[in-house]
């Protein structure tokens, strides 16, 4: 039972990790929490769903479309709203308000044009489970774990080993200095939004496959956000660790206490972290950013 729950927790934690890293990336660069991130994931899930169910595309192509679509929407948010606000030198609160507005817009756009119904993906991945001794792992969970691990490893390589990673690490440390060193800040911010959006899109599709697709599903990203606070806002590695820990904790609370109090525990944990160690697990000093 215990190990089984642990496996379930890791599987949901992985999906949180996909969203939490995007949050962390954007926070580390722009210093604000992008509330619309979860809704980008939701739109990604819908794009994937529509491609599979309505257009009848093969699953891999639909998933790819969902990733690119979510990335494009994420870039659009940055281009149309956030960039303008940054140019105005407006307070950070305005960025958060804009993000809230975008989140409300996307949710209601889907409600108005596609309806508030819960939808399920057609069975693109077999609903079977593999038994390892007494533990059962669903094929879908396995698949999503592999995707998460590959994505996280690529992200880690991207940030630590490439020129792109160096540029965004420099920019997150000090944007003005970085731009003086010849880094095209706007270009890299666009790339980061593309990356974060695509990761969110992947998270959305996996979440949609595991459960259902509905307009408010983006609210799940609150958990991802808590995960990135837990790991230290702005720290990608922290976000990954935080996401897994939160996923495991949620499964344990619903499994051993009661599912009604699951969210209470998660938010209670959030408040406790902020009171005890607001910088989170990995957010110790500036060098640790990104």
């Amino acid at each position: 039972m215990f190990v089984q729950q642990l496996v379930n927790g890791v599987s949901i934690g992985g999906i949180y990790a996909l969203m939490a890293t995007g949050y962390a990336l954007i926070y580390s660069l722009l210093g604000f929490s992008n509330w619309a991130h979860g809704d980008v994931a939701m739109l990604g899930a819908y794009i994937g769903f529509l491609c599979v169910a309505a257009v009848k595309m093969p699953f891999w192509l639909s998933a790819l479309t969902a990733l690119l679509g979510a990335g494009a929407i994420s870039i659009m948010n940055e281009r149309l709203a956030y960039r303008r606000i940054r140019r105005n030198n407006a307070p950070t609160m305005f960025l958060m308000i804009a993000a809230m507005g975008l989140s409300v817009t996307f949710q209601n756009m889907v409600i108005v044009f596609l309806g508030p119904k819960f939808r399920t993906y057609p069975p693109v991945i077999p609903v079977k489970s593999i038994s390892l001794g007494s533990i059962k792992i669903g094929v879908l969970d396995m698949f999503s774990m592999i995707i998460v691990i590959i994505a996280m490893m690529l992200l880690e390589l991207l940030i630590t080993k490439t020129k792109f990673g160096l540029a965004i690490r420099a920019a997150s440390s000090n944007m003005i200095t970085a731009s003086l060193m010849g880094i095209n800040i706007d270009f890299y911010i666009t790339l980061v939004f593309l990356l974060a959006g695509s990761l969110a899109g992947a998270g959305g599709v996996l979440l949609g496959l595991k459960y259902t697709v509905y307009p408010q599903m983006g609210n799940v990203s609150l958990k991802a956000f808590i995960a990135s606070v837990f790991g230290g806002l702005g720290s990608v590695r922290g976000a990954i660790v935080g996401a897994f820990l939160i996923g495991i904790m949620e499964v344990f609370v619903s499994g051993f206490i009661t599912s009604g109090l699951r969210d209470l525990f998660t938010f209670g944990l959030l408040i406790a972290i902020l009171l005890i160690k607001p910088s989170g697990l990995f957010g110790i000093d500036i060098q640790d950013k990104a």
Partner: peptide
């Protein structure tokens, strides 16, 4: 939907 769009437009 209108509220959301209005807020984004106003704040930007």
């Amino acid at each position: 939907l209108f509220y959301g769009i209005a807020v984004v437009l106003i704040i930007t």
